[in-house]
Design a protein around this nucleic acid. Structure first.
Lengths: 226, 226, 226, 226
DNA sequence: GATGAATGAGTGTTCATTCAT
DNA sequence: CATGAATGAACACTCATTCAT
């Protein structure tokens, strides 16, 4: 059985098993023995590839974060145009990527958040993640509005994303991505529209965000209503 | 030492100790022994007043829920007027009541949410709580907009509330109530404004979200009351 | 089963079980489970009365040290006369007390000594013990000889006691107390005789110990310098 | 990398690593992984050169014993004269050879002694070692005194050597070889002197050990300096 | 010859729970 | 009422050993 060069394979295998285990029984009952059983390996192997259980959990969280980053990055790399709106929609959509709203992912994220409040290593990761979303949003929003307004909008949009995600996770049902996107996109457009309004008269929408049509309630509604 | 009629005192004492313990070391490390130590009582007494540890946790969650309900109810009972906006603002504000955004409360809520994903008794409570917020919001929103729109707005507002709360909890810093209220109130007003626009039929004067009027309490109330 | 006031009983019971366990299988195989089985109690009880295994081992070592102290003290309190020789013989004999040369005691002492080289808590106790023997010997020897000579004799006598004890322990056979005492007493008498010889000319051998002349630096230095 | 004829090199390398490991963390924490890390080799190689961990420990103990034998043998092969006293002094000095009183050696010896009480393979070695010292001493002492007296003196001298060694090991400080030699030599001379005294009148000191002069301080000093 | 992947039994310890006092 | 003694299963983790490469 033992082979060389198994490290990346085993690590991935164990991270997947961790997600499954947390999905099935929750983080507190996802013992090393349980995870090893799910992965179909022995208990001891976890210490072999990760220093300890915490190392495995940290790696699992990093995995989720990497998936999130990848989902966002991919969407941002294939935009129709370079407007802030498109970028922001990509960021929003990336946060509702399948990799993030699957049962295992949602339960694990939630468990990690709770655990991060008292576990320095997870806390560090969580803060990085939190800040990355806010930072990404803020950066794009600033292209369409003053900095203070951008900050506020970023806070609101980040909260809305996390809140939709959280309530989706807690609902127990499958995550309704379309619904979440609709609500978040609407919020985004409202923020952009508000910025646009403030700009009227000094037609500085050149650099702008938000093309006119988006602000037409009728169309928007039609397009997004589900 | 033993006295009669200690039950409510002891129960409250143990619930407070649970909140403190979760705040200090997290739910997973808040053992019965730890909680008992914090409460200054013996280990065995917890089984005496609550069936088991789960009973204590459930009671603690009920305590938080009751505090939330009370915070909302109190605000709704002292409104300046009976407009949906005022009610909704009261609901929002109630969710950011001191009892809900204190360190112990936030950590315990978060831990309970995570635990509720795999613990039926907590799950039941959490669903009641989730639904209550949505339901309260939806009920008032329906007074200002069509039911579909109200549902969507309720979902968005509930998500925003939870998201603001969540990000506040995870930030590690003291919760910035004002900032959260500002963002949530703005969202609320935007939703009400949108409804208003749709309602005007012909003269939907602004294209938009049109800030000014809404911020004038008097006018806003007049406009939105139905 | 559970009763109040069991602490001293259980502690003693567990210390005895530790001695038996170490006697039977050695310190490294004397697991908590084994000790608990020997004591006829559950595994968990050890953590209840001692913080952890180390606490139990430390308590066991303290027990042996207390037995040693007691054995010496008892002999010194019932001496025929107050001469240094009698005191020193009592100290020597106390070190070969039944409580110290029984199989369990010898094996446990030896195991503790080895463990003390890398375990601070045990090391502290061992150093206290080592120093106590040397100090006791030195104190009495000084009544019969100059300080430098007394120190050297104390080192020799302490080493001889420990060596006799060690070789007895390692022999595997029952400890031959008489033989050990004979050898140690002989060494003691030789040291005292040597001191006496040096004293000749200033007939102060009356009470046997005789102080003053020995403290003459010149002589002492010459004789003992090494 | 793999070469032929590596066996003696690897074995020596691993034995040295074992001594280092025991010196650093103690026998109980000197796991195969730790020893392998110290030696800079893989875990599995230990089983390759020694049957198992016990094989490695046994080999390490044999190494120490061989070093001790060598230290004694070397000294006995370069004596000024063939008197028992010189031989005995050589034996004593060999026991305090640098190879025996270094930190790693002392800690490993002590650990092996403790372990030998419950491990047949180590026990066998330890008994051989113990007996060798006694036997060597006794053999030479018999040249200077009657057999009973020689046995007793051998027991005493062996105990004194081991005791000095033990207390040196436990002290934590560097071993004071000079001091130990002084005490042991003195004991030896006392024993030889005693034998000589018993012999007076039947001037059989011819084969002897040289009696009277030893109690003459001046001469003693000369004789003991080395 | 040498590696390191893999095992699974065993470790000390923690814990919720029970119950005699 | 309240205590804390007692249990024993479960936990994360370590370890000597095996063996395919």
């Amino acid at each position: 059985m033992p082979k060389v060069g198994m490290q990346p394979i085993r690590r991935s295998q164990l991270i997947q098993a961790t997600l499954e285990a947390v999905d099935q029984v929750g983080l507190s009952d996802a013992s090393i023995a349980y995870i090893a059983r799910v992965a179909g390996v022995s208990n001891g192997i976890i210490s072999h590839y990760f220093q300890d259980k915490n190392g495995l959990l940290e790696a699992t969280m990093r995995h989720l974060m990497a998936a999130l980053s990848g989902a966002v990055r991919q969407r941002r790399s294939t935009l129709h145009d370079d407007t802030p709106r498109e970028h922001l929609r990509a960021i929003v959509a990336g946060n509702f990527d399948d990799s993030q709203v699957s049962g295992p992912a949602m339960k694990t994220w939630l468990a990690f958040w709770a655990a991060s409040m008292h576990q320095p290593s997870l806390r560090r990761l969580q803060r990085i993640n939190d800040h990355r979303l806010y930072s990404n949003l803020c950066c794009e929003l600033r292209r369409a509005m003053p900095v203070d307004q951008a900050r506020s909008a970023a806070r609101g949009l980040a909260a809305l994303i996390d809140g939709l995600w959280l309530r989706g996770a807690l609902s127990g049902d499958a995550f309704n991505i379309e619904q979440a996107l609709h609500i978040a996109y609407e919020y985004l457009d409202q923020q952009l529209a508000k910025a646009e309004d403030s700009n009227v008269g000094a037609n500085s929408f050149a650099k702008g965000s938000a093309a006119a049509p988006f602000n037409t309630p009728g169309q928007t509604s039609d397009l997004l209503s589900d």
